[in-house]
């Protein structure tokens, strides 16, 4: 490889590690978790970084002491063993107590963030997600108090599907959309969600256990037949966020991606109206059209 290319890649890798900007989708040479585009992903990222730096600090102390011992106490340098140094209650109390304090310092921010993540109240929209072998079904259940009847299946895009066949001879690098490689991370019909809206998900499965995961949203949740799990998100930034099934679900587990297209509320309501959804009464879009009654009639 050409040295300047290596240098530019290294620079990209370092930027990826240090950069606070949201990386929405996986990048080449990505080293670190992305802060994502929701409060949940921000919480996961913060806990990750807190833990990482505490572990690095402990590692520097422990491995530093080990390295010092390996250099300083070599027999070849004439080190004589101090066979009486085999026990010290004081040291042992210290190195039991300090880790407990560090753990408390870790548990506190983790607990507050987890409690916030677990709060699914005050949602404005509900989406039911059902995992199948090997695709996802999305049902828009309600939006701002209005029951909805939008229901569709989202499967791996044809381009990726052709390319991924054993011995297809097709190049995964050629699977692109808008200059981004979307190999195995693209679908025929993405889930469209409004930004700045608390969306509650009801997650289940029809056959085996799957897990719905979009890294930029900050969590994954198992989809289990016979159970309905809840989760929520509130996306801050419009964009296209890609993810994958995260629980082994059979031969095509690697081939059931998730794509969320987050759009501003007005655009979402347009999408809802275009797809036969019911707009809430008094809504800007609904009233500028032929009124709420006409909008709901459109869904019939």
């Amino acid at each position: 490889m050409h040295p300047t290319r290596i240098r530019s890649r290294l620079a990209a890798a370092i930027a990826a590690l240090a950069s606070p900007v949201a990386l929405a989708n996986p990048e080449r040479w990505q080293l670190n978790l992305s802060p994502g585009v929701t409060a949940s992903s921000q919480a996961a990222y913060e806990m990750h970084m807190i833990m990482l730096w505490i572990c690095v600090a402990i590692g520097v102390v422990v491995f530093g002491a080990m390295t010092y011992a390996m250099i300083r106490f070599r027999k070849s340098k004439g080190a004589v063993p101090d066979t009486s140094f085999t026990h010290s209650t004081r040291i042992e109390v210290i190195w039991t107590t300090i880790p407990v304090l560090i753990l408390v310092a870790m548990a506190w921010p983790a607990t507050t963030r987890l409690l916030a993540l677990a709060d699914t109240r005050d949602y404005e929209m509900t989406v039911k997600i059902t995992g199948y072998q090997w695709r996802w079904r999305y049902e828009i259940v309600d939006y701002r108090g209005q029951a909805q009847d939008i229901n569709f299946v989202s499967s791996l895009d044809l381009d990726s599907n052709r390319t991924r066949m054993l011995g297809s001879g097709l190049d995964p690098r050629a699977v692109q959309r808008d200059g981004v490689n979307t190999y195995l991370l693209d679908v025929d019909r993405p889930l469209v969600l409004p930004t700045d809206t608390k969306v509650r998900f009801l997650i289940t499965a029809n056959d085996v256990i799957h897990a719905w995961w979009v890294p930029a949203l900050g969590w994954k949740q198992d989809a289990i037949p016979g159970f309905i799990n809840t989760a929520w998100t509130d996306i801050r930034k419009p964009g296209i966020y890609r993810g994958q099934c995260a629980e082994l679900c059979g031969k095509d587990h690697g081939f059931m991606p998730i794509v969320v297209r987050a759009v501003p509320r007005a655009e979402f309501e347009q999408w809802l109206a275009d797809n036969g959804g019911t707009l809430p009464p008094g809504d800007l879009l609904a009233t500028t059209a032929d009124g709420p009654a006409a909008a709901s009639a459109g869904s019939l």
Binding site: N25, P26, E27, R28, Q30, S34, R164, P172, R173, V175, N181, T182, Y183, L184, L185, W213, P215, G243, Q244, C245, A246, L248, H253, G254, F255
Partner: peptide
């Protein structure tokens, strides 16, 4: 963002 137990993956 790479899940485990997948036989194939995105170019990233």
């Amino acid at each position: 963002g790479m899940p485990r137990r997948i036989p194939d993956y995105n170019v990233a």
